[in-house]
């Protein structure tokens, strides 16, 4: 069941295209999508939680169906701007004891938010987190990338500039095996404003959130994937070491998006963690 959330509740709801489903009276799970996609990324994971939890999803400003006009380059010049939005959503909906599930760069947004307002969150579930993508030779930190790699990413984004510019992206002629998706969803999924994508990429991949880890006291689960280009095993270990009260779980799933490629395994790991720690 999807609750109706009107923008009359708060401009924040409209800005971040907040949607609510699951059990209205259940404990709150708030899902924060990562770089490159939008809230639809959680689609395959949600059925494992919707019978028990109240599910709150949103799009980062600049992604999905968020209010692109609210994209302020100064505000979103660091992850703090995204953390502020996340806390505003909690505040607008008066969410308490939130289980915050956050993927990729948003895992670090979650870390910042939990450091700011610890009382708001009961658990953090960090999917494929990385506090810094670029290697730091000075203190032996392995993030997996060099500065040049990130420049390469920005060039790749430029190459896709026109393909991503709104209404220009052609759809594949056929997708016979995905009948459950409506045309409308297909055309909007992961739609990205190319200029924002480029700026967000820069902010994401040049961020360094390592100092924030030690400021978090919330119980947390770290889900580490196999063969994840963006979050190699060293990074998962680093987060685990520096995040007090954290649990590290190694998933069989490969790649950067286990909730997409292996939703059942991912859900199982999260449910096991939640039941074990309550």
């Amino acid at each position: 069941m999807v609750e109706t959330v009107t923008s009359a509740v708060s401009p924040v709801i409209r800005r971040n295209n907040v949607t609510i489903s699951g059990q209205a009276d259940g404990p709150v799970m708030l899902f924060a999508h990562g770089y490159g996609c939008d809230q639809d990324m959680w689609r395959r994971l949600l059925p494992y939680f919707s019978d028990t939890y109240r599910l709150v999803l949103f799009d980062n400003v600049g992604a999905g169906r968020s209010d692109v006009d609210a994209y302020d380059r100064d505000k979103y010049a660091s992850l703090d701007g995204y953390a502020a939005d996340l806390l505003e959503i909690c505040d607008a909906l008066e969410l308490e004891d939130v289980i915050l599930v956050a993927h990729s760069v948003s895992a670090m947004v979650a870390v910042i938010a939990a450091a700011r307002e610890p009382q708001r969150f009961s658990r953090l579930v960090l999917v494929a987190p990385s506090p810094r993508y670029i290697n730091d030779l000075a203190d032996g930190y392995v993030g997996g990338f060099s500065q040049e790699d990130i420049e390469g990413l920005l060039a790749s984004l430029d190459s896709n500039y026109f393909a991503w510019a709104e209404a220009l992206a052609p759809m594949a002629m056929g997708h016979p095996e995905a009948p459950e998706l409506s045309e409308e969803l297909r055309s909007s999924f992961c739609r990205t404003n190319p200029s924002i994508a480029r700026h967000f990429a820069r902010v994401t991949f040049l961020s360094d959130t390592r100092p924030m880890l030690e400021q978090v006291g919330t119980d947390s689960l770290i889900l580490q994937c196999s063969d994840d280009l963006l979050a190699p095993p060293e990074v998962g270990s680093y987060v685990h070491e520096h995040l007090e009260r954290s649990t590290l779980v190694q998933l069989q799933a490969t790649g950067h998006c286990p909730h997409v490629s292996a939703p059942e395994d991912t859900a199982r790991a999260i449910l096991d963690y939640l039941s074990a720690s309550t």
């Binding site: 990338f145 896709n160 992206a169």
Partner: peptide, 27 residues
């Protein structure tokens, strides 16, 4: 190249998983 690898991991694989297709990605 690495930049395209990141793009493929963050954009294409989730889109294929959720949406079933990607089209005309420049790599």
């Amino acid at each position: 190249p690495v930049g395209d690898q990141i793009l493929y991991s963050t954009h294409c694989i989730p889109q294929l998983g959720i949406n079933g297709s990607v089209s005309e990605i420049a790599v």
